[in-house]
Design a protein around this nucleic acid. Sequence first.
DNA 1: ACAGGTTCGTTGCAAATGCAACGATGTGGC
DNA 2: GCCACATCGTTGCATTTGCAACGAACCTGT
Lengths: 155, 155
Amino acid sequence: MDDGQGIEPDGLPAFDLGGFTPYRVALVAQRLSEALAREYRVRFGLSVPEWRVLAHLAQSDAVSVRDIEDAVAMEKSRVSRTAARLEARGLVAKRADPGDRRLVQLSLTGDGRAMMADLLPLASAFQGEIEAQLGTDFAGFDRALGRLLEAYRGG
Amino acid sequence: MDDGQGIEPDGLPAFDLGGFTPYRVALVAQRLSEALAREYRVRFGLSVPEWRVLAHLAQSDAVSVRDIEDAVAMEKSRVSRTAARLEARGLVAKRADPGDRRLVQLSLTGDGRAMMADLLPLASAFQGEIEAQLGTDFAGFDRALGRLLEAYRGG
DNA sequence: ACAGGTTCGTTGCAAATGCAACGATGTGGC
DNA sequence: GCCACATCGTTGCATTTGCAACGAACCTGT
């Protein structure tokens, strides 16, 4: 009677949200984000978007809003406002690109660099913690993430 | 000179956001969510929170806001407002719990059940698609998700 | 029965978000 | 050089969100 995709008494096909991969991934993303954000929100007063922008600036200086938009997967208006907030806090500098005045060059200030010098080791430690949690399964996990990013990139 | 956690010329430790697991997971979550939402937003006019609430109601009828809050990992105010919207659209019924009048019993209406009868097979197909993408790696991937949920549950 | 404390769901309010529209700047065709 | 068109970043606006506060209902001990 049970054909493996059974029908419940109420006429609906059986479905377990808790086992649904998109939901599980969203949940893990949320938990990891919260765990990490706990560190850098309480200690540095950063939100997730702010952390992302700073992290990208730390690895590639003098980039445009558009560059960040692509690199950190955020809407350009979100990047723009985040950058404005970071500038107001003195962590990021904005100046017009001399070659193309439509562009804005974002870069870390001295303060911004100093903060990231404290923050990045914490991030690396967190990464190490996750890898330790997963042990030998980490490589496969990361590969699967890459596969899904490929399969569902933009579409 | 490169000790494996090198220092960049700008004095910051090397860090690759694109390889940072929390970021990668967040990205996959976003992509999967978008891919799925494309289906049920255009065809059924549902948002992600609405989908989650309906999905939970489909598998366990007559539950309280608090139950859903736990089951679908959403703030209670978000659940409350989502339920109100679904009620206004005639997909969900709300009634006071006769045993404990603080509680609200949420359940699918006939219309709601009918919609879910169309939706759930799509969700199952999407799940199958993901599993096909990952092939034999899916089991390990899912296990790793579970491990991370355990490790970072609530804290 | 009643006072103190707890749980449930809703709501007010400020902040964040997405989307579209906009001005400014660049580019290419002619 | 000029005009149509594309790109960049910001902003207006409506919606969504999280948090705290609230009233209502329940529970406990006395």
